[in-house]
Amino acid sequence: MSARDAGCRDGDVEWFFDVVSPFAYLQLEQLAACLDPGRVRCHPVVLGVLLEHWGTRGPAEVPRKRVQTYRSALARSQATGVPLRFPPAHPFNPLPLLRLAVAAQARFDAVRQILRFVWRDGGDASDPQQWQSLARQLGLPDAAERVGSEAVKSGLRGSTAGALARGVFGVPTLVVRGEYFWGEDATEMALRTLAQGTAWLHADEWARALDLPVGVSRRA
Rank of each mutant, 00 (worst) to 15 (best):
V46W: 00
V46R: 06
L47C: 04
L47A: 05
G48Q: 08
G48H: 08
G48R: 09
V49I: 11
V49E: 13
L50D: 01
L50A: 01
L51R: 08
L51E: 11
E52W: 12
E52D: 12
H53I: 01
W54H: 15
G55C: 13
G58W: 04
G58K: 09
P59N: 11
P59S: 14
A60D: 00
A60G: 04
E61V: 08
V62A: 11
R66E: 12
R66W: 12
Q68A: 15
Q68F: 13
Q68H: 11
T69S: 13
R71H: 13
S72N: 15
L74H: 09
A75P: 06
A75V: 14
A75H: 11
A75Q: 14
R76D: 09
S77I: 12
S77V: 13
Q78P: 06
Q78F: 12
Q78N: 14
A79S: 15
A79Q: 14
G81Y: 03
G81R: 05
G81T: 09
V82F: 04
P83M: 13
L84M: 10
F86I: 10
P88R: 00
A89Q: 11
H90T: 04
H90V: 00
P91K: 04
F92M: 09
F92T: 00
N93K: 02
P94S: 09
P94E: 03
P94Q: 04
L95H: 08
L97I: 03
L97V: 02
L98W: 01
L98Y: 04
L98C: 08
R99W: 01
R99L: 05
R99C: 02
R99K: 07
L100I: 06
L100K: 00
L100E: 04
A101M: 14
A101L: 13
V102H: 00
A103D: 03
A104K: 03
Q105N: 06
R107M: 07
R107F: 07
R107E: 15
R107S: 08
F108Y: 10
F108E: 02
D109P: 04
D109V: 01
A110M: 10
V111I: 08
V111E: 02
V111W: 12
V111T: 08
R112Q: 15
Q113W: 00
I114M: 04
L115H: 10
R116G: 09
R116H: 07
F117L: 06
V118T: 01
W119I: 02
G122V: 10
G122L: 09
G123A: 06
G123M: 08
D124R: 04
D124N: 14
A125Y: 06
D127I: 00
P128A: 07
P128S: 05
Q129R: 14
Q129C: 10
Q130R: 12
S133A: 07
A135Y: 09
R136A: 11
L138K: 01
L138C: 07
G139C: 08
L140C: 04
L140E: 02
A144G: 07
E145H: 07
E145P: 05
R146C: 11
R146P: 03
V147I: 15
V147L: 05
V147Q: 00
S149D: 03
E150A: 13
A151C: 12
A151H: 14
A151I: 10
V152R: 01
K153C: 05
S154L: 07
S154H: 05
G155F: 08
G155S: 07
L156Q: 01
G158E: 15
G158A: 15
S159N: 13
S159E: 11
S159C: 11
S159F: 10
T160W: 09
A161I: 05
G162W: 03
G162H: 12
L164P: 02
A165L: 15
